[in-house]
Nucleic acid binder design. Sequence first.
DNA 1: ACGTAAGCGAGACGGTACGTCGAGTCTTGGT
DNA 2: ACCAAGACTCGACGTACCGTCTCGCTTACGT
Lengths: 194, 194, 194, 194
Amino acid sequence: MDPITSRPPGRPRSQRAEDAILRAALALLAERKNVAEVSIEAIAARAEVGKATIYRRWPGKEELFADAVATLRPPLPELGQAPLRDDLIAIFTQVCAEMDSPLDRAVTVLMMDQTHPEIVHRIKQQVLAPRSRAVANLLRRGVDNGEITPDVDPEAVVNLLTGGAFFCRRPAGGRSAQERAQLLVDTVWNGIRA
Amino acid sequence: MDPITSRPPGRPRSQRAEDAILRAALALLAERKNVAEVSIEAIAARAEVGKATIYRRWPGKEELFADAVATLRPPLPELGQAPLRDDLIAIFTQVCAEMDSPLDRAVTVLMMDQTHPEIVHRIKQQVLAPRSRAVANLLRRGVDNGEITPDVDPEAVVNLLTGGAFFCRRPAGGRSAQERAQLLVDTVWNGIRA
Amino acid sequence: MDPITSRPPGRPRSQRAEDAILRAALALLAERKNVAEVSIEAIAARAEVGKATIYRRWPGKEELFADAVATLRPPLPELGQAPLRDDLIAIFTQVCAEMDSPLDRAVTVLMMDQTHPEIVHRIKQQVLAPRSRAVANLLRRGVDNGEITPDVDPEAVVNLLTGGAFFCRRPAGGRSAQERAQLLVDTVWNGIRA
Amino acid sequence: MDPITSRPPGRPRSQRAEDAILRAALALLAERKNVAEVSIEAIAARAEVGKATIYRRWPGKEELFADAVATLRPPLPELGQAPLRDDLIAIFTQVCAEMDSPLDRAVTVLMMDQTHPEIVHRIKQQVLAPRSRAVANLLRRGVDNGEITPDVDPEAVVNLLTGGAFFCRRPAGGRSAQERAQLLVDTVWNGIRA
DNA sequence: ACGTAAGCGAGACGGTACGTCGAGTCTTGGT
DNA sequence: ACCAAGACTCGACGTACCGTCTCGCTTACGT
């Protein structure tokens, strides 16, 4: 009766299977580094699940990965205790480090893909939003503090630093994530004008 | 005699076929927006070429696209006549515009892919290098001019602006490429410190 | 419980598909008259079946044709009511007629092929054996009756007559199957010694 | 002037190449035991010849094999010195032995193929005819001698014995070629009637 | 002696079929 | 209604030959 407590008839879907599928998807993504290289069959096999159990839940690979990726909630470093510049470096050190992680980088590339705009949207909402909001808050606070100029566009700053982190990955032997973050943040911090 | 003018035995490879293949690959990439969605068979059909003619030249799809992409030589805007900031905006207006082009964006995403590092390297060398070098020259000139501070890291600037352009694409109705470029460049130009 | 009535897990193989494949194989063999001219793809298309459905059941063309051919069970004429010589003529009239049928002849040629000895064995067992046994029985009965000499080797007789039928096919306008059978049987029947 | 001694302009065709091609074709046929398994490319490679050199001479594989097979001229045993029955056994011992030779058997199977009737005709003319004629002569002589009955059809006898030889091949360990030939000839010789 | 014309080897050309793999769907018996 | 298993059709994969077509070079003749 109660539309909330009432359940559909028949055997309920197995949470166990669902978790195994999402876990398998991420594991394989980390291994193969590319969504296209991960087959649904491989996910089903790894999760010890029938293919139908996957297709019952998601219409296709992309939606499955959207959900799988959404389970990743990168922890935020503790913010607001330090000067703004240090907080920014802390956050983008983490972003730079993620760019070195096969899984996180694969997710980012997936996000860049033009063929699945809703997925991009979902990832932005569920995964990136907290961090973006945190940075936006930091910047707003910085403006209030007088630490940064009031005419700054927070979104532009996020895009610059995120994109910079994405592009500045180096082949082995390069700078550490923290060094890279520091360089990026400082460049934006000071500007380049004489 | 001359080891350079001497030719290998047998019928030489058809330049016509090679061109048609590369053209077809790029056309299909622009249509499908994703390397994974472009099949070798479709390229062969579009180029009116046998599959073997493709596999004779490239071991796989990635190498083929690496060459196809290398044929794209984005023209540089004329630089050096205007103040540094205007030149930067001109260049990154072009970059932002490319991010709105399905083909160029697909190429960029391909470049981000971790599974083919040598291809990334080739694209960087052959396609991006002229532009990067141009920006580096601009910045060096700016330092000499006294337009920008001497302690700036040119590569960091390129990464920030390129990545920013890559990430700041908006769904239809957003800012124009030039507006976005201007915003990005100004943010880096002025810095964010009060 | 019962190891015979228990079934393997998963969707069972479609008998419908299997029949369609075998039927298509024989139809195409009759049309093209040569196993080499019949492609698996053509069989799959004719049977409205995926190629994998064929390869799931048979490792290759030869094994498929072995099974297809095994479905051919040439009806035996009614034997034992007539004098032995008439029965032999009846049987070998049928064999001669088969040598004029593209399908049956293609099967016979396939059987002669040295590259697939087990297939030859299977065809002999499943298709030819009943007829051979029938002839052997006839001959044994003939010996008992006193119609034929007791020192005859039944297998030699079968080989002679079968091979004779195989080789004596004529281009259009030749003798009828029955005339040829009669000539062959009579030659063996009477011998050639003065 | 002389249409016989005049030669076409240009470089004459290489007899060396032609021989090598035919030799290679037969060698590969003996190895692979089946015309369908021998590719033109393999013949060209084995003969160290370009494919065009083959296609310049023959329109296709079948015509090439027709010529290759025509170079096989099985030697006739010396006939006419012995009683007819012994001569027949001598000839069909050779036929039985050929049925055990991969090459000769492959040729025979090729001959049975319905898709190339002209080739069959050529092989009959050029390869089999001498032997058939020899057997026919033997039989005619036998009739004259009074060794065999005058109402025998020579062609039927040839077909029976040839077909019998073709069909009576046994897996390893069977009777020798001579034993088989003797059995076949004796069966036809004596007939089976009591 | 030299040009012309066809043959030569090599190997690329557009195709067709191969046998494999994965996509997304369907069909079992059993939970 | 769910589940694992494994069938289904379909389409792309990369390979092997088909028969044809260029290449640069060779061979033989008629001038």
